[in-house]
Simulated scan of single mutants.
Amino acid sequence: MTIRYARKKQISEGRPMADINVTPLVDVVLVLLIIFMVTAPMLQMGIDVNLPKAKSQNVDVTEEKVVLTIDGAKGIFVNKTKIPLAELGLRLEGVFADRSERELYLRADRTVPYGFVVEVMAEIRKAGIDKLGMITEPPEEIK
Rank of each mutant, 00 (worst) to 15 (best):
V118A: 12
A127P: 01
A122W: 01
I129S: 13
V66W: 01
F96L: 05
V112I: 08
G75P: 04
A97L: 15
L32E: 07
R99I: 06
V26L: 11
D60R: 13
E123N: 10
M37C: 10
I70C: 12
D109L: 04
T111K: 15
Y114F: 05
P52Y: 06
P52R: 14
R107A: 08
D109Y: 02
E103N: 09
N58D: 14
R125A: 14
T62Q: 09
T69G: 09
F77M: 04
M45Q: 11
M45F: 03
R107S: 08
N58G: 04
N21P: 07
K126Y: 13
Q57S: 11
R7T: 08
T39F: 14
D71K: 05
K53N: 08
L104I: 15
P52W: 11
M17C: 09
R15M: 10
V61Y: 00
Q57G: 12
Y114Q: 07
A127N: 12
A97P: 05
V112A: 06
V22G: 00
I129H: 12
V112L: 09
V31R: 12
I76D: 09
L90I: 15
R125D: 15
V59Q: 06
K53W: 07
R99K: 15
D71T: 03
A40V: 11
K65C: 03
V49G: 04
L92I: 10
K55I: 01
M42Q: 14
L106Q: 11
I35Y: 07
I34W: 01
L68F: 04
R91I: 13
V38N: 13
G14C: 02
D48C: 00
P113S: 14
R102I: 01
L33P: 06
R102H: 13
D71Y: 03
A73T: 03
R107N: 06
R7E: 14
P52N: 11
R91S: 04
N58L: 08
M42V: 15
L30P: 00
G46V: 02
K8L: 15
I11R: 14
K65F: 05
L30C: 06
R110N: 02
T111M: 08
Q10R: 06
R15L: 13
P16H: 04
K82S: 08
V78F: 03
Q57W: 03
L25S: 02
V38E: 09
A122L: 10
S56K: 03
E93S: 11
E123V: 01
V31S: 10
V117T: 07
R125N: 15
S56Q: 07
D60A: 10
V67W: 03
G14L: 00
I34C: 12
R107H: 02
E64S: 09
G75Y: 10
K74Y: 02
V117N: 09
N79V: 05
